[in-house]
């Protein structure tokens, strides 16, 4: 009777060990994936920072140019509006 119990327990132990092995394998894989995703995230964060810096410098450059050429910009916008009005007459 006790012998049977030992056999059953051994089989259970072997099965659970296999499951443990599989779980460990999955865990390692997840860990690797996590590290990869973290690196990727860091990369995209750097990209966002870079584009934010570019955006800020482009915006300030644009604002400066816009202020320096305000009159011309207003003239351009007026002609744009006039042109759109004629386009509407054509449509």
């Amino acid at each position: 009777m006790k012998k049977n119990i030992i056999i059953i327990l051994s089989v259970i132990a072997v099965i659970f060990s296999i499951v443990l092995g599989i779980n460990y394998y999955n865990y390692s894989k997840y860990n690797e994936e996590l590290n990869y995703e973290k690196d990727k995230l860091e990369e995209i964060k750097n990209k966002v920072n870079e584009i934010n810096n570019n955006f800020d410098s482009s915006t300030s450059n644009y604002e400066k140019l816009k202020n320096d050429n305000q009159e011309k910009m207003e003239e351009y916008e007026k002609w744009l509006k006039r042109n759109n009005e004629v386009k509407e007459l054509l449509s």
Binding site: S58, T59, N69, Y76
Partner: peptide
Amino acid sequence: IDEQTKIIINID
């Protein structure tokens, strides 16, 4: 912004 900037640079 780049397009708008180009417009201003070549405004004439």
